[in-house]
Design a protein around this nucleic acid. Structure first.
Lengths: 211, 211
DNA sequence: GTCTATAGTGAGATAGAC
DNA sequence: GTCTATCTCACTATAGAC
């Protein structure tokens, strides 16, 4: 990984690691500052407050994820081949940076921390997330229209993909107990790729395909 | 749905709702006490502290879930039929009590809140969770041994089932955006049952089965 | 079994020197 | 751009009256 270019990037890096582990409410700015090698007050020179810091961490992660995903969905392959490529690319992306899956999962179900607040900061973040979801949905629609995928509920299939791909790499200790070994080792990631690809290849195919 | 029988149960009920929404670190005991109609200090008469309260909430939820799951896995049907029944039963259980999925998901990836502590309180909770996971794994092994399911990785399949079933009902606002409507309405739950059952029926079948 | 009062700690945030 | 000092507030938890 690249060394952070500025104090700002250093703060974002250590905050990403901490928020991934313990969530928004579970992390104090004191801890972020210590890990970044700064005083607590210095954080407020770079970010207006804790929510803005969290928002920027989330946006960075979402944009990273989106860029990888869009590049493979744009490839000139059949829908089934692109589905496989997309699953593999998403899994590889999550496997390379262990913080990503946990932050993504938190962005998907931890909105309630910010219920009472106005938060225009999150508009862009939400737009990026909505873009990713819309892109995957449109891809599935294509595949159904071409008769490659069964006429599934697109929304539910997106949910199952998120569950199978993102949750897995966010599950940490419990996940390691379930699969009986590390989640991020090369073998474990390769096995996960095979298993998820096969589940959805068989699960979505309009007709029983070749093994 | 039953009215709480005691102050203790009332506290557990309101704490369950709050922890489900905002997690361990995001909830203060002041808020729990207010929602239960008690003074803050009264909580300490019923629970030794915040972690014990959280632990008991989690244990209640896990045991509820385990009991429903074990009853259907014990039914005298074929593995494929029992898989369908188990998926439907788990989905129905999560749909009936909207707090359950979020707490389960938190128990799966929020251990890091308690890293520094000793916590003998969580031994029983962890055992219940391990029992559930082991039970599902053993069931999948059976189905593979009988040649009904493909020779999948059992651990990865458990992870995909959790992702498809638990994550979905924990995804709240974002999930509603993805499926384009409420998650807990009767139609939405029925559709989710069909979709997940079909995904795993096709996805796990050893040979292309009947539609 | 519930209350008031309070201890003790740490949170997020601000002011202003350097 | 980083610091020290400080403000205000909320937190978990305890002590002890009723």
């Amino acid at each position: 990984m690249n060394a952070p270019a500025s104090s700002r990037d250093k703060i974002l890096d250590v905050a990403e690691a901490l928020f991934a582990r313990r969530g928004y409410a579970g992390v104090g700015l004191r801890e972020v500052a210590d890990a970044a090698g700064l005083g607590k007050s210095s954080l407020f020179h770079h970010f207006r407050g804790k929510t803005e810091l969290y928002c920027e961490v989330q946006t960075r992660v979402l944009e990273r994820f989106r860029d990888r995903l869009e590049s493979v969905l744009a490839e000139p392959h059949s829908p089934m081949r692109r589905l496989e490529r997309a699953i593999e690319e998403m899994i590889d992306g999550l496997a390379e940076q262990p913080t990503t899956a946990r932050l993504l999962l938190r962005s998907l179900f931890e909105d309630d921390n910010f219920e009472g607040k106005d938060l225009p900061e999150f508009e862009h973040t939400d737009k990026v997330l909505a873009g990713i979801i819309g892109r995957v949905g449109a891809f599935l629609e294509e595949g159904i229209a071409e008769g490659v995928f069964r006429p599934v509920s697109v929304g539910d299939t997106v949910q199952s993909l998120i569950g199978s791909i993102v949750y897995h790499f966010a599950s940490a200790d419990v996940g390691e107990g379930i699969v009986g070994g590390p989640l991020f080792s090369a073998e474990s990631v390769a096995r996960r790729r095979r298993e998820v690809v096969e589940l959805f290849r068989h699960g979505l195919a309009a007709r029983p395909g070749p093994a």
